[in-house]
């Protein structure tokens, strides 16, 4: 039984493999066929910016279904990694590109890019609705979330606050929200106490804070808006009085320091050489208000919008 030449087994399996692979080679991505612009656009990056780019893709698909837009959510860092390898046309980012780590990779690969601000997000500090606190200062937030913080009761934050146990919820260390919050509040990116309930899923944080007496947490404004009936947002005082997060305060710049800009990074080469990418980006920026509304982010103010438009107009190969 074992004497049969082995090539009889190897040959068919190789043939099958070859067949399978050549069968795959038949079709390839659709490019300009008819008169209208068609082609594919690859977008990847921040999961925070994902709803914006995805909304732009949906609105564009309603007008021109021939443009095949794929939007991924590998995270800001993961997005830049593939962007700087030339695998994507656009990278979503909830923070600017890192000049020391990420920008040189892009430069080495010869990928020139343009940063466009597309919307504003207000990181919102939320508490359980029964907590009798309405406003915190950035110093108090730093005291609560600092690395060596041992605060476990609201009255340790401020003697005027109620005597109530303080439990903390927040995003995990892989999150861009975590990076931004720690950078602004604790003074250094990634520096935070670690004995809190961490989750990458903001819905888990919302449920946790809503279900725990005396709880505090933070996440993007959209998640607060969706859960406004079960959570209370705290006003933040960065020295100029208490300011509640809202579309207005984030857009006019009074809600500091937790209002953050959201960006897309467009590859200049893709923009000038691929009609589909140009079409998508132009459409995106042109309809930025609608895109922000659909994805429930805070639209840019007039000044910021003008700046984005000017930057877009300046893209050349």
């Amino acid at each position: 039984m074992t004497r049969t030449p082995k090539r009889w087994v190897i040959a068919p399996s190789i043939a099958v493999l070859a067949l399978a692979l050549t069968a795959c080679g038949g079709q390839s991505g659709a490019t300009d066929e008819e008169g209208g612009v068609s082609g594919s656009v690859a977008v990847d990056g921040s999961s925070t910016v994902f709803p914006l780019s995805d909304a732009a893709a949906e609105l564009l698909a309603e007008e021109n279904p021939d443009i095949r837009v794929t939007v991924g959510e590998a995270g800001t860092g993961g997005g830049f990694e593939v962007f700087c390898q030339g695998k994507t046309d656009i990278s979503d980012a909830s923070r600017p590109i890192k000049d020391d780590e990420e920008a040189p990779v892009c430069a080495d690969a010869g990928i020139a890019y343009t940063e466009l601000q597309v919307a504003t997000d207000a990181l919102t500090v939320v508490v359980h609705p029964d907590v009798e606190v309405d406003c915190v200062t950035t110093e108090q937030l730093a005291a609560i979330w600092g690395t060596d913080s041992t605060i476990s009761n609201w009255n340790q934050v401020d003697p005027g606050f109620p005597d109530q146990e303080l439990s903390l919820f927040g995003p995990g260390a892989d999150s861009g929200t975590f990076d931004y919050f720690t950078d602004e509040i604790n003074g250094e990116e990634g520096v935070s106490r670690s004995d809190y309930e961490a989750s990458e899923d903001d819905n888990v944080i919302a449920t946790g804070v809503a279900g725990t007496e005396g709880a505090m947490g933070y996440f993007g404004y959209t998640y607060y808006e969706e859960n406004a009936d079960s959570l209370k947002a705290l006003a933040v005082d960065s020295g100029a009085g208490c300011v509640l997060p809202s579309a207005e305060t984030a857009a006019d710049g009074t809600y500091t320091p937790l209002a953050r800009p959201l960006f897309i990074y467009v590859s200049n080469a893709s923009y000038t050489e691929k009609p589909a990418v140009k079409e998508y980006v132009d459409f995106y920026i042109e309809n930025l208000d609608a895109v922000a509304e659909v994805s429930k982010y805070i639209p840019l103010n007039d000044e910021q919008y003008a700046a984005t438009q000017a930057t877009l107009a300046g893209i050349t190969g």
């Binding site: 080679g25 038949g26 594919s40 994902f50 995805d54 698909a61 279904p65 991924g72």
Partner: peptide, 22 residues
């Protein structure tokens, strides 16, 4: 699939083995 960078926001039908998909 997450590791492969498969996209989530896709609004077209895949049309072959080399097509982007979700």
């Amino acid at each position: 699939l997450l590791l492969l960078g498969v996209a989530v926001g896709v609004r077209f039908d895949p049309n072959g083995f080399l097509s982007a998909f979700t």
